[in-house]
C-alpha cells in the first residue's frame, strides 16, 4: 500500500501525541486526564479506529478511542476489569452486532473499508478478522471438522484434498498437528484445554484472516498451555496482525510489540510495549502496571 495515501487516512497528525519530551516522572499526565498519551498511530496500519464510541443502551462503554493496528504486530490491550477492552475488541469484527442494545459510533476501517458502513457484509468481514475467545469453544464435532468448517462455508476449497491440506497447514501453524494427526476424527471437545484453544486458533487461521482478535485466550489455561499459546502468537505475527486482550501484564510484556492501556472506557496510553512497562507516561498506567490497583 502506498504510504502517502495511507497517511491521508489519518485525520490527526501523528505528532500530536508522539511527543517524546514527556518522559520524566514529574511530567506524567495527571490521573484526571483522559486524553490518550503515547503513540496510538502507526505507519501503514492494517486497521484504523477513529473517535470510536460504544454505547450499551444509554451507558457509554467506550469513550472516544482512536488507535491503529499495525501490520505483523501484536497489539496488547490491558486494563482493569470492566474497562471496555473486550468491548472494543469485539467492535473490530462487529461481534457486538449480536448484542441488541449495543451501538457503535465512529470510524473503524480495515484496509480502507469502513467496516460499519451499511453496505459491508459481516460474513466476509469476520472471515478476514478472525476471533479467538476467552473460553476454548470448539464445536462439538471432530477435530478435522472444526478446522474445516470455515473453509467449507466460505467455499475456499474445491475438493477434499485441498480441504485436507488446509486443515493440515492450519493445525501445523497452530502447533497442534503432531499431537492430533492420528485422531483427526475424534471430537474436538475431547482435547485438553490448551489443545482446545490451539484448535480454536487453527480454526480461525484456516480461513486466512488478516487480523486475529484474541479475547484473553489464556485465562482458562494452565502455565504450560499458556506458554505454548504465547509461542504460537509470536509465530503467527509473521503472517497476521494480532490484537490480544489480556489480564496478565507479563503476558502482554512477553508477546506484544505495542500495548494499549484502557481505563473505564477511555484509551489512556498506547506505546511500544517495553516503554509502557518501563516508562509509562500516564499516572494511571503507572499505577496499574505497578499493581496499585486493578
Amino acid at each position: 500500500m502506498d504510504l502517502t495515501a495511507d497517511m491521508t487516512n489519518q485525520p490527526f497528525p501523528t505528532q500530536l501525541f508522539g511527543d517524546d519530551a514527556i518522559d520524566t516522572a514529574e511530567e506524567k499526565a495527571k490521573p484526571s486526564s483522559r486524553q490518550t498519551v503515547g503513540d496510538p498511530f502507526v505507519e501503514n496500519p492494517r486497521m484504523i479506529c477513529r473517535d470510536v464510541y460504544v454505547y450499551y443502551a444509554e451507558k457509554c462503554a467506550i469513550n472516544n478511542v482512536s488507535i491503529d493496528v499495525g501490520r505483523n504486530e501484536v497489539l496488547a490491550m490491558i486494563g482493569p476489569s470492566g474497562c471496555g477492552k473486550s468491548t472494543f475488541l469485539r467492535c473490530l469484527n462487529r461481534m457486538n452486532d449480536t448484542v441488541g442494545t449495543c451501538r457503535v459510533e465512529g470510524d473503524i476501517r480495515l484496509d480502507d473499508m469502513n467496516i460499519y458502513d451499511p453496505s459491508v457484509d459481516v460474513v466476509p468481514l469476520r472471515a478476514s478478522v478472525g476471533m479467538v475467545f476467552q473460553k476454548p469453544n470448539p464445536f462439538p464435532k471432530s477435530i478435522f471438522d472444526n478446522v474445516a468448517y470455515g473453509p467449507k462455508i466460505h467455499g475456499l476449497v474445491s475438493n477434499k484434498t485441498e480441504l485436507a491440506e488446509i486443515v493440515e497447514t492450519s493445525l501445523t501453524k497452530a502447533g497442534l498437528w503432531n499431537e492430533v494427526k492420528d485422531r483427526l476424527h475424534e471430537p474436538g471437545t475431547g482435547l485438553s484445554g490448551g489443545q482446545q484453544q490451539r484448535l480454536c486458533i487453527a480454526r480461525a487461521i484456516a480461513v486466512s484472516p488478516e487480523v486475529i482478535l484474541m479475547d484473553e485466550p489464556c485465562s482458562a489455561l494452565d502455565p504450560i498451555a499458556t506458554a505454548k499459546v504465547e509461542e504460537l502468537i509470536a509465530e503467527l505475527r509473521e503472517q497476521f496482525s494480532i490484537v490480544i486482550v489480556t489480564h496478565a501484564m507479563q503476558q502482554a510484556a512477553r508477546v506484544s510489540q505495542r500495548t494499549a492501556y484502557f481505563h473505564l472506557g477511555d484509551l489512556i496510553e498506547v506505546g511500544p510495549t517495553d516503554r509502557i512497562f518501563t516508562n509509562p507516561r500516564h499516572q494511571l498506567t503507572e499505577d496499574y502496571i505497578t499493581g496499585r490497583f486493578g
Binding site: 469484527n93 461481534m95 449480536t98 459481516v122 460474513v123 466476509p124 468481514l125 469476520r126 472471515a127 478472525g130 476471533m131 479467538v132 475467545f133 473460553k135 469453544n137 470448539p138 464445536f139 462439538p140 468448517y149 470455515g150 462455508i153 466460505h154 480454536c200 480454526r203 480461525a204 480461513v207
Partner: peptide, 22 residues
C-alpha cells in the same frame, strides 16, 4: 451455550448457518 454461537459467528458463519450447523 452462547459460546457455540460466538464460535460460529466469529468464523464468519451467517446467522442461518450458525443455526442449522450448530
Amino acid at each position: 451455550p452462547p459460546s457455540i454461537r460466538e464460535a460460529a459467528l466469529g468464523i464468519g458463519a451467517s446467522k442461518i448457518q450458525m443455526v442449522t450447523h450448530h
